[in-house]
Write a protein that binds this DNA or RNA. Sequence first.
DNA 1: AAGGCGCGCAACCGCATCAAA
DNA 2: TTTTGATGCGGTTGCGCGCCT
Length: 221
Amino acid sequence: MGRQPCCEKSGLKRGPWTMEEDDKLMHYILNNGIQCWRLVPKHAGLMRCGKSCRLRWINYLRPDLKRGAFTEAEEDMIIELHSRLGNRWSKIAAHFGGRTDNEIKNHWNTRIKKRMKLMGLDPLTHKPILFDQTYKADQDSIITESVEIHQESNLSLPPLEDYLQIQEKAEVSASNDEERNDVTNSIMFRNEDFSVDCYYQSWMDNPFFWDGFTTLTDNFP
DNA sequence: AAGGCGCGCAACCGCATCAAA
DNA sequence: TTTTGATGCGGTTGCGCGCCT
């Protein structure tokens, strides 16, 4: 015997909300407030489940919602917060007045992820993709993309094979995740063979200085 | 003109968490 | 302490729209 559904499903309307429904919900909440979402549709005269009403109110009808496209400053703030909080969208949204978790999540998945990949950063770890051992074979294209960006910028980078060989050695010799991380970090920060370490370090410290439009040579020494 | 395709967004689903009984 | 129901959250889906061929 499974868990009871949050509300009686039969006869309930689903899909996009009509203006009339929005109007009913908006007026009900503005006049009565929210005591119990389960009761809201009943009292407001809506054939919707309480959960659906809650979502509609939070993501669309709330008067304090900020409309319009995200600014670059907001995107940078999302990236910064995501690097600290991960996919905790509601926590991230709490730092924005008038932006919803759903909105931020959607924006992350459709825009920011692409922007970060273009910057050569892994959206999961926020580290440069070249060094990120969590990126496996199915993401080779992204690595290649990243390398191409560097090549286009005329930087004298060591060949990709060098990085991959070292990464491979690190993975083979390390016995656990922690050790693997240590090895990778040592590759990234301490191996003197890589003269580019210093600017990768600064890139990791502050990836936001690159606006995504100027070339990397403008920013890297 | 129409069909295919990709993108962005709204909404849904199922699990987690919390609080009251 | 356990059970139960409401709410919150994050992942996923599906639809509409615009662009391209």
